[in-house]
């Protein structure tokens, strides 16, 4: 029982961290609350389903789907969002990204119907850890999430590109003054966020269902985690993701998994009232 809690908590947490990382990055770097973030997750999942059922090998399906969501993210930032940002009202961006997410939902409903789909597992050898049998698909999701997060952190802290992202997040004006093309950094950041959300959407597809409203719960969870971690803070988001992941395991252990979202929101409200700056306490990626 306890081992199950421990292991499932870690798996949930790592996936949440992967999703929240991109959401947090978009806010921290570009100052944008991107309500389309959950939609990347959905789009990638549907695309992989579509490609695999069309007979394309799964590896190529995954790569193609991720490339498409990255281009989608870059496009949304480069044209509509940067345009709206110049107009100076962040509410326009909220409405635009939310509207686009609903549009995507209806588009997929139209194309694929309201049924639930899933895709074959990428790795189906189950493993025994601490006496618990862990399905291969879940273990795979965990490992991919952890590796991806580590790679992103290395990318941000070690590469020339990452340093430009870091500089832009701290002071966009100062970054421009030292020669950083911040509009381009915004586009790259959004594309990266789309990639991360897309990876999460693909690795969960073998064990969670693909459906046209999967974006909303994902968005709510990412949002909750990022508020809890301190808007825009990457370490904060990762810590908060693990807190929420384990909380979810705990709630489903002692109560019922259908209550987890309610508990998430209650915790977020408590934080908004007593510690609105989140766990890390200040805005920094």
């Amino acid at each position: 029982m306890f081992a199950n809690f421990l292991i499932n908590g870690a798996i949930n947490s790592s996936i949440y961290a992967l999703i929240a990382l991109g959401f947090s990055l978009t806010f921290g770097v570009a100052g944008i609350v991107n309500l389309y973030h959950g939609a990347y997750y959905m789009v990638a999942a549907y695309l992989v389903y579509f490609f695999i059922t069309s007979g394309i090998p799964s590896f190529i399906s995954v790569v193609l789907s991720l490339l498409i969501v990255m281009v989608l993210g870059a496009f949304l930032m480069k044209y509509p969002i940067l345009y709206l940002q110049k107009k100076g009202e962040s509410i326009y961006i909220l409405i635009f990204t939310l509207g686009s997410a609903y549009f995507t939902q209806y588009l997929f409903k139209l194309l694929f119907g309201a049924s639930y789909y899933s895709i074959p597992s990428f790795y189906d050898k189950s493993t025994k850890i601490l006496g618990e049998v862990i399905p291969g698909s879940r273990l795979f999701a965990f490992i991919v999430s952890v590796i991806t997060i580590i790679l992103v952190l290395l990318f941000i802290n070690k590469t020339k590109f990452g340093k430009q992202i870091l500089a832009t997040s701290q002071d966009k004006y100062a970054a421009e003054l030292v020669g950083v093309n911040t509009s381009m950094i915004f586009v790259v950041t959004m594309s990266l966020a789309a990639l991360l959300s897309g990876i999460a959407g693909i690795v969960i597809s073998p064990f969670l269902s693909i459906s046209p409203n999967m974006w909303l719960t994902t968005l709510l969870k990412a949002f909750s985690i990022v508020i809890l971690g301190g808007l825009g803070s990457i370490p904060g988001s990762i810590i908060a993701a693990f807190f929420m992941g384990y909380l979810e395991s705990f709630v489903s252990l002692v109560w019922t998994s259908s209550m987890t979202e309610v508990v998430f929101l209650v915790i977020v409200f408590i934080f908004l009232i007593f510690r609105p700056t989140g766990i890390m306490g200040k805005k920094t990626i």
């Binding site: 701290q170 002071d171 004006y173 100062a174 421009e176 030292v178 020669g179 093309n181």
Partner: peptide, 24 residues
Amino acid sequence: MNTFKISRMGISLSPEGRRLFPDL
């Protein structure tokens, strides 16, 4: 022209308010 391009051309500014990257 855009600020970053002007900077790369060889004009640099120490701005009002200093504007350092505070966490670096």
